[in-house]
Design a protein around this nucleic acid. Structure first.
Length: 799
RNA sequence: GCCUGAGUGGCGGAAUAGGUAGACGCACAGGACUUAAAAUCCUGCGAGAUUUAACCCUCGUGUCGGUUCAAGUCCGACCUUAGGCACCA
């Protein structure tokens, strides 16, 4: 048909040499910022899934440019991370070399697909010029009291002597050697993200995220309204505070449970008679991985604290105190009041330990299960008789406040961000430890703190980062007292660099700021951000937190720098399974580009299904898209010498313009393609078409098939499509004077009639009633009502 | 267990505000062109009953019920499936 490889290379070269898609800061045009998640450049190359989302955003970028916007559509590399480090350990090369190779592959693939990125803004998170600013921003967190060091637990494989990520420790076993993962205590850097819980919920109002994305964020933050209630340890007078969302059931409390790590246990150790048993249980809880501990369907375990007395502050009833691992130290106060009659977990625990169960809400059967429904309050003193939760909670809160033993309290599931990783291949945390002065930030003038150039990255056997072994690097002087000091050897998590990269694109070569305020004010925010579903909770939340912090210290112009966020579906293998080497269902985009061309691959991936839904690969369907492109190509043989547009095509042309413009706004890429197929079919049916007819189709198709459309457009002698204006629908051409509408009898279609668009109702009714098949169905029936729904349907009700 | 999607022909999927379900494409079948094949073009294509044939008829958007002149679309219960969270008090 035509040599697509030659045509595609030609235009790719043209775009690169002419910087056709360069975005200029401060232009008079309206700015429009389109962002697609930058990839982790893995060794396996670009995935067809990348092609799907990049094509979609590319199409949007090309349309917006034609609509007169100054479009920023950048690309870069999120290149820190464990795989590059693993690869480097195995092959004794520096990860930056592996990364350089992978980036080269990825970029070559992207160029071969014709994406209209502004490559002048390209960077990698691993460039010292970039991570200098990631480190600088960490220092701002630190200087504003938002970064601190604290002891937390990490997944630890005792055999590999290595810290594992939650993913590598999935199922409670080490992914590499299969040993049981245990929890190891470690001092780590933390960011005070929990302080931002409320602001992160509120900020969503200033965004246009898809509802399901907003919900994902809200659920992750996990806001809950409840109360704190103080219980008192009689022997010492210490307060033991619990968090509950059901203070209405306070009369039903028969015991309390503390998390095994609860600090009160240490404080009371002198009083606790069975301290040995308690210590043993604490050890047991620690030995479990986070996975095991949170596994739901397991037996409740625990130990009673013997020798201390606690009473229910409302009715003076005895309340025994247990420790159990079903209570988490990290949420609420790390202690709960147990109401076994009305909480499933407390019920199980009570049954196992033979504890008293007092119902305080009527309904249910406590012989069988905890009753969590609503009902009339019983056995509850001043609450008796109230028959709904809300009111009972309100009354109880009033009482608790009055007596000074409790207060309303909001809790969030969102915790502070563990910001340390025990890895080599990440941004070094720019902190120094001095025996005399403690933790000290390194001076900003010393940034970037670069990773050393060595070739050995084996982790240490005590769980520290490989950096700890590079003594030249570790040993330094204290910025404050100039004495001997050690560098922090942990690095930042992968999420760090990706939390602000969209800001850097606005001003990527700035060497004295991460991005100038002017540049950020010009671009305002990311108008349209697309990425994977798996990133809509965490990555997006981290990025929003980061931006909100920068805003609060006056470094960015808005509290939310991302406006619309959408997520695309995955491209599955033809077997409807996730593509993977082991399943042998992987499609390599390079093969498709060389066999069918980039345009065909792009069209197919837009046509394959609902963009926001997963869709399986089908090479047959791909071939159909090849046929479509070929048909568009062959239309050039039908050109006539007439000027303007063909009269008989104007209606469908304008319909198509209107339809596809709307489709592109709402990510209806599959229907966008189908509408162009319909237009192409109409062109094929015509005896001949004008050059303007043809060019219109080429412009409309250009966002998804940019190479062949530019080529055919050039053959006709026109100026570039990349300089063209997106067509606007001429509504006057859409006015139809005739229309076929359906006639229903008792809800079933029994015929169709042709009407004039402005025909009066009476005449339409008559036409409908005269329709043969309609008459047949009305035989022997009495007409009750005839309704004409304008230009849509006539419906007859008969008995 | 909770949250969020999704269930429509042989397949991928359409159906802006409830108004002719199955657009567009794939696969398949028949035909044209060809020595032949590929490519291309034409025709058919939800299921069923009936008929020489056409019209026509019945059923049909995961299941059951409801609202409506009219439901893939709205409401209520449920089932299946994918993803996320998970002893969160």
């Amino acid at each position: 048909m035509y040599n697509f490889t030659k045509v595609e290379k030609k235009w790719q070269k043209y775009w690169e040499e002419n910087k056709t898609f360069k975005a200029v800061n401060g232009s008079d045009k309206e700015p429009y910022y389109i962002l697609v998640e930058f990839p982790y450049p893995s060794g396996s190359g670009l995935h067809v899934g990348h092609v799907r989302s990049y094509t979609a955003q590319d199409a949007l970028a090309r349309v917006k440019r034609m609509q007169g916007y100054n479009v920023l559509f950048p690309m870069g590399w999120d290149a820190f991370g464990a795989p590059a480090e693993q690869y480097a350990i195995k092959n004794h090369i520096h990860p930056k070399d592996a990364v350089r190779e992978n980036i080269k592959t990825f970029k070559g693939q992207m160029l071969s697909l014709g994406f209209s990125f502004d490559w002048d803004r390209e960077f990698s998170t691993t460039d010292p010029e970039y991570y200098k600013w990631t480190q600088w921003q960490f220092l701002q967190f630190y200087k504003h009291g938002m970064a601190y060091k604290a002891k937390t637990f990490v997944n630890w494989c005792p055999k590999c002597m290595s810290v594992l990520s939650n993913e590598d420790a999935a199922g409670g076993v080490c992914e590499r050697c299969g040993s049981k993962v245990v929890q190891k205590e470690k001092e780590q850097w933390m960011l005070r993200m929990s302080d931002y819980a409320e602001d992160l919920i509120k900020g969503l109002d200033d965004t246009n995220f898809a509802d399901r994305v907003k919900l994902g964020q809200i659920n992750w933050i996990g806001k809950s309204r409840g109360a704190e209630v103080d219980f008192t340890i009689e022997e010492t007078g210490d307060k033991l505070t619990v968090y509950t969302t059901r203070c209405d059931t306070l009369f039903g409390v028969t015991f309390m449970v503390l998390a095994p790590e609860h600090p009160m246990i240490e404080k009371l150790s002198g009083l606790i008679k069975n301290m040995d048993e308690v210590k043993k249980y604490q050890e047991y809880a620690k030995s479990k991985s986070a996975f095991e501990r949170t596994e739901v369907n397991k037996d409740k375990t625990g130990v009673k604290l013997e020798g201390i007395t606690v009473k229910n502050p409302l009715n003076g009833g005895n309340v025994s105190v247990f420790i159990s691992d079903y209570v988490m130290m990290g949420y609420g106060t790390g202690a709960i009041m147990a109401v076994p009659a009305h909480d499933q977990r407390d019920y199980e625990f009570a049954k196992k330990f033979g504890l008293e169960i007092i119902p305080v809400i009527a309904g249910g059967n406590i012989e069988k299960e905890a009753y969590t429904g609503d009902g009339e309050m019983i056995n509850s003193g001043f609450l008796n008789g109230i028959d709904n939760k809300q009111e009972a909670i309100k009354k109880m809160l009033e009482y608790l406040n009055r007596e000074g033993i409790g207060r309303e309290k909001v809790n969030y599931r969102l915790q502070d961000w563990v910001f340390s990783r025990q890895r080599f291949w990440g941004e070094p945390i720019p902190m120094v430890y001095c025996e005399k002065c403690g933790w000290q930030p390194i001076p900003e003038s010393e940034l970037p703190l670069v990773l050393p150039d060595v070739a050995e990255y084996e982790p240490t056997d005590n769980g520290e980062s490989p950096l700890a072994k590079i003594t030249d690097w570790v040993n330094t002087t204290c910025p404050k007292c100039h004495g001997v000091a050690r560098r922090e050897t942990d690095t930042m998590p992968n999420w760090a660099g990706s939390s602000w990269y969209f800001l850097r694109y606005m001003d990527p070569h700035n060497d004295h700021e991460f991005a100038s305020m002017d540049a950020m004010k010009y671009w305002k925010k990311v108008n349209w951000y697309n990425g994977g579903m798996e990133h809509t909770a965490r990555h997006l939340l981290y990025a929003r937190f980061w931006v909100q912090f920068l805003y609060n210290v006056g470094l960015v112009p808005s509290k939310e720098m991302i406006y619309t966020r959408v997520s695309h579906g995955m491209v599955l293998g033809s077997d409807n399974q996730k593509m993977s080497k082991s399943k042998g269902n992987v499609i390599n985009p390079d093969d498709i580009v060389s066999d069918y061309g980039a345009d065909v691959l792009r069209v197919y991936e837009m046509f394959m299904g609902d963009y926001q839904q997963d869709a399986p690969w089908s090479t047959d369907s791909l071939k159909g898209c090849k046929r479509f492109i070929d048909r568009v190509y062959r239309l050039k043989n039908k050109l006539n010498d007439n000027d303007g547009y063909s009269k008989n095509l104007e209606m469908i042309q304008n319909k198509t313009i209107k339809g596809v413009s709307y489709d592109l706004e709402r990510m209806g890429y599959n229907t966008y393609i189908s509408k162009l197929m319909i237009l192409t079919n109409a062109y094929e049916e015509a005896t001949s078409i004008t050059k303007d007819d043809y060019r219109l189709l080429l412009i409309l198709l250009n966002p998804v098939a940019p190479h062949i459309t530019e080529e055919l457009n050039q053959e006709m002698g026109y100026d570039l499509i990349s300089n063209a204006t997106w067509p606007v629908c001429d509504e006057t051409k859409l006015v139809e004077d005739e229309k076929e509408i359906a006639v229903q009898v008792n809800g079933k279609v029994r015929g169709t009639i042709n009407i004039k668009v402005d025909e009066d109702e009476e005449s339409i009714k008559n036409k409908a009633l005269e329709c043969d098949n309609v008459k047949r169905h009305l035989e022997g029936l009495e007409i009750i009502k005839v309704m004409v729904i304008k230009n849509k349907i006539v419906t007859i009700v008969a008995k």
